[in-house]
Structures are given as structure tokens and as C-alpha cells.
């Protein structure tokens, strides 16, 4: 239940893409993993759609660079497919896969530490904001990056998966291999830290989003 729709049936933030995957979203991870093992492209495609955003967010939590996060997430999908037979419990694919994402992200940081990358996603020209808004967002992104840098990897993962991807405490606990209480604690601390760092700089852009 991570793709396309949130639990209350409303459209989730990141997907936009997942509308056509609603039916596939009902299929359990274990079934998708077993079919992917046999080379079923549709099953693998559903797995990718289901976990691509969370993979990106976990990778970003580690790399804190958009391009590295993108590379690490895509690499992780490839590695996961190659090692799919080693996934002992296909029903718990999410936790196994997130470990791969995290490891690939750390490896990528070590491997490409000299590469210059942009910290945050490039703005698409098709939907480019005005220069004023761009400047405002750039400022917000810089401060957001600074605020996130004060959090640990796991705190970033927890707050992003919960408040951006919409995962529940139980799902985060299962997939990150943490006790539920620890997840709540990390989430509380991360939110508090972000509010402390960013609370005074709610720009017009964010205000506009919140007031709608």
C-alpha cells in the first residue's frame, strides 16, 4: 500500500504515476518477488513502482545528493533483482531491499566522493517556477539541507518515509529493522529538530501550499 494511494484512498504525494498500478498494488510483495524470480517483467515492474520513491528517500537520507540518491536507488533495484533468490522471506522484501538501498548508497558515497553533484533535484523546465519563487525555494532547500544534515541517517529515513512517503510506524519498524518505540522516538526528534531549524523561515511558497 505504498503506491498511488494512501490508506484513506486519497492520492499520495509522490506517486502521481501510480494510478495505473492501483490493481497491482493489491498484490503481496511475496507473490511479486516469486514471480520476479521467474523473470516476470510485470511483477518486477510493480515492485519497482511500489518501492522506487521509498528507495530514493532512503538513498537520499544517506547521500543527501539528488543524483547520488537516484543512482543508488536504481543500482539497488538491479542488485536486488540479481540477488532475489537470496531473499529468504519474500513477504518481507521491503526490509531486505531497504538494506540493499542503504548499502548501495554508502558504497556510492565512498566510490564517488570526488564527483560533483547538485544537492537537490533540478527544476524541470516544463513546470518552472518564477525567478522569485525559485530564489525562495533555493533558500528553503539550503536551509532544509542544513537542517537535515543535523539529523542522523536513520532519523532522516524515518521522518522522510513517514511524513513524505506516508509509511506507518509499523511499516518503518519492519522495513528498517527498528523497534516501533525507536521509530516514534526518531520521528519525534527529527520533527522537533526540523521545526527548530526551519520554523522561522516558512516562506510564501510553503504558506501558499498549506493554505490551499
Amino acid at each position: 500500500m505504498h503506491d498511488g494511494l494512501r490508506r484513506d484512498g486519497s492520492v499520495n504525494t509522490l506517486p502521481r504515476y501510480g494510478v495505473f498500478m492501483q490493481e497491482a498494488d493489491q498484490v503481496e510483495d511475496g507473490d511479486l518477488v516469486r514471480r520476479s524470480c521467474a523473470g516476470d517483467e510485470e511483477a518486477y515492474s510493480t515492485l519497482v513502482g511500489r518501492y522506487m520513491r521509498s528507495a530514493y528517500l532512503v538513498a537520499f537520507s544517506v547521500t543527501r545528493k539528488h543524483e547520488d540518491a537516484e543512482d543508488a536507488a536504481q543500482e539497488a533495484f538491479m542488485v536486488a533483482l540479481q540477488r532475489l533468490d537470496e531473499c529468504r522471506n519474500p513477504d518481507r522484501f521491503g526490509g531486505w531491499f531497504m538494506t540493499i538501498v542503504r548499502n548501495r548508497s554508502r558504497n556510492l558515497i565512498r566510490r564517488e566522493s570526488l564527483r560533483t553533484t547538485s544537492d537537490l533535484p533540478e527544476t524541470a523546465s516544463s513546470n518552472a517556477p518564477t525567478p522569485d519563487r525559485q530564489a525562495e525555494r533555493r533558500e528553503l532547500r539550503e536551509q532544509l539541507d542544513e537542517a537535515l544534515s543535523r539529523l542522523s541517517d536513520v532519523q532522516r529515513e524515518v521522518v522522510m518515509l513517514h511524513d513524505l512517503e506516508g509509511w506507518k510506524h509499523r511499516e518503518i519498524a519492519e522495513r528498517l529493522g527498528l523497534p516501533s518505540g525507536t521509530v516514534r522516538s526518531h520521528l519525534h526528534f527529527a520533527r522537533k529538530a526540523l521545526r527548530g531549524s526551519l520554523g522561522g523561515i516558512v516562506g510564501d511558497h510553503i504558506k501558499g501550499q498549506l493554505s490551499k
Binding site: 504525494t13 509522490l14 520513491r53 537516484e70 536504481q74 533495484f77 524541470a124 532544509l144 511524513d163 510553503i206
Partner: peptide
């Protein structure tokens, strides 16, 4: 509020086709 801040990190925010391209390339 935190969701709104973190939404800045979504690469699909400014490009409606970002995730579609990501998915297509990965598959």
C-alpha cells in the same frame, strides 16, 4: 508542516514525468 518542507526533496514535484522515467529506466 514537515511534510511541506520535505516535499521540496521530491524530484517529481517539478516534473510530472520524473517518476515515470525513473520507473521506465529501472525496468
Amino acid at each position: 508542516q514537515v511534510s511541506a518542507w520535505l516535499g521540496e526533496l521530491d524530484p517529481g514535484r517539478d516534473s510530472a514525468t520524473y517518476w515515470m522515467r525513473f520507473h521506465r529506466d529501472t525496468v
